[in-house]
C-alpha cells in the first residue's frame, strides 16, 4: 500500500505515488537551478513539464491509474539530466568514464568577508581561508580578550591590513576557487537563489 497524491502537470491531472512525486519535483528543481540564468527558464521548464505530462498519459492509458516511481525514472531518462540537456558532457555519461576534469584551485588569498561578518569580516575571511567555521575563530578571538587582549590588537591589525573582498573574483579567490566563467556563474546563481528564497519566505510570511 502506498500513499498517492494528485498533481496537475500542464493542465492534466495525475495520481502519483508519494515517492514518485518527490523524485519528479527534485528533478524539476534541478533543471530550474541549471537554467536559472537562462532568459527562457520558465519556458524551458513548461516545455519539459508538458512533455512529461504526455509521457505519463501514455503510461496511464490502460488499467493502471497511478504514476509510479519507475514511470518517473523512465521519463527522466528519456528527457535527460540537466547536464545532458545542455550537451555539456554527454561524453562522460555515454561512455561511463570519468573524464570530468578535477576542479582546479587557484592560490588562496586572505580577504575580509563582507557577507560573513559581525565587525570587520576578519573572522569570516580567516574562516574562508583556513576552511574552518568562522564562529570557531570568533570564539578564539573572544577568549583572548580574557587572556590579556593580544587578540584585540591582532584583530585591529588584520582589520587594517587585510583588504575587503569587494568583487566577485575577490570572493572566489578568498575561497580558493578558480576565477573562471563557470565559477562566477555558480556564485551569481547562488546569490540569486538566496534572493529568490528570501523573497519567497517574505511572501509566505505575508500570506
Amino acid at each position: 500500500m502506498k500513499k498517492t497524491m494528485t498533481v496537475n502537470i500542464s493542465g492534466i491531472v495525475f495520481h502519483i505515488d508519494e515517492d514518485a512525486y518527490d523524485k519528479l519535483s527534485a528533478y524539476l528543481e534541478k533543471i530550474r537551478r541549471h537554467f536559472a540564468n537562462d532568459q527562457g527558464c520558465e519556458e524551458i521548464i513548461s516545455g519539459i513539464e508538458s512533455r512529461i505530462s504526455e509521457v505519463f498519459q501514455e503510461k496511464t492509458q490502460n488499467q493502471r491509474q497511478v504514476v509510479t516511481i519507475e514511470d518517473v525514472e523512465e521519463a527522466i531518462a528519456q528527457l535527460g539530466e540537466p547536464s545532458q540537456i545542455s550537451g555539456e558532457d554527454d561524453a562522460a555519461q555515454d561512455s561511463g568514464s570519468t573524464q570530468r576534469p578535477e576542479p582546479e584551485y587557484a592560490p588562496k588569498r586572505l580577504f575580509r568577508d563582507p557577507d560573513n561578518k559581525y565587525i570587520g569580516g576578519v573572522c569570516g575571511g580567516l574562516g574562508a581561508y583556513f576552511q574552518i567555521d568562522a564562529t570557531l575563530i570568533r570564539i578564539i578571538f573572544l577568549l583572548t580578550l580574557f587572556l590579556g587582549g593580544g587578540g584585540l590588537i591582532l584583530y585591529l591589525v588584520l582589520w587594517i591590513v587585510v583588504p575587503k573582498a569587494r568583487t566577485m573574483s575577490d570572493r572566489l579567490s578568498m575561497r580558493g576557487e578558480k576565477i573562471n566563467l563557470s565559477n562566477i556563474e555558480k556564485s551569481i546563481k547562488e546569490d540569486l537563489n538566496d534572493i529568490k528564497q528570501n523573497l519567497e519566505n517574505l511572501s509566505k510570511k505575508k500570506a
Partner: peptide
C-alpha cells in the same frame, strides 16, 4: 535526450 530540444527552441 529529449530535453535538449526545449532550450534550443526557446
Amino acid at each position: 535526450v529529449e530535453g535538449t530540444i526545449y532550450p534550443l527552441l526557446t
